[in-house]
């Protein structure tokens, strides 16, 4: 029984590692910034799972909360602002300073 659990955990770890690399590749070379930001959030969550598997729950918590959550929200709001600046609908454009 212990052998089965060990083997399935090894398979899970391998799949996790492959998924991490695959998501990172898609994030960097895929089309569209919005898609990249969403993949970045997914990468953060997968990375947090990886930290759990490595036995570091503290780092996993920080990665999920700050790496995926807050950084993801910051990237999304930056993307929205960039779009508004590009289309010229920025409300505060020009009176920022």
């Amino acid at each position: 029984m212990a052998e089965v659990i060990r083997a399935s955990l090894l398979i899970f770890d391998g799949l996790l590692a492959l998924t991490l690399v695959g998501v990172a590749w898609q994030l960097l070379f895929g089309q569209g910034l919005f898609r990249s930001v969403l993949l970045f959030i997914a990468l953060g969550l997968l990375l947090s799972l990886t930290w759990v598997r490595l036995g570091a729950p503290d780092v996993a918590l920080a990665e999920a909360a700050i790496g995926a959550g807050v950084t993801g929200a910051l990237l999304l709001v930056t993307l929205g602002r960039l779009r508004r600046m590009a289309t010229g609908h920025a409300r505060d454009r020009g009176k920022g300073s």
Binding site: P57, D58, L61, A62, A65, I66
Partner: peptide, 13 residues
Amino acid sequence: SGGAFQGGAVLAA
């Protein structure tokens, strides 16, 4: 497991 950064990030969310 826990701490200021993790708790702060949840509050920030």
